[in-house]
Amino acid sequence: MSDATVIEQIRNVIAEHARLPGEAADLPAGASLYEAGMTSHASVSVMLALEDAFDVEFPDRMLTREVFESIDAIAAALSELAVGSSA
């Protein structure tokens, strides 16, 4: 899976589960999802959906606000779990 595909897939999960007031497609990859209106309740749905979409389990140490702060941050977390092609 290429980095671009990973970002695309994360964006789809956000669009479906983050319940943002605005359009997820317009959101810069570095922008704060919380500032964009993702509640902590919605963030749990996003995490579950990401685990499902990428077939991973986030270990407890990764389950923090910061790790799910932005699309970029999520991509970094997934790459740490060996998803995508980043070395």
Partner: peptide
């Protein structure tokens, strides 16, 4: 309610 949500994702 909060814990119910968190328990879906927290592991240990």
């Amino acid at each position: 309610q909060t814990n119910a949500g968190l328990l879906l994702i927290a592991k240990e």
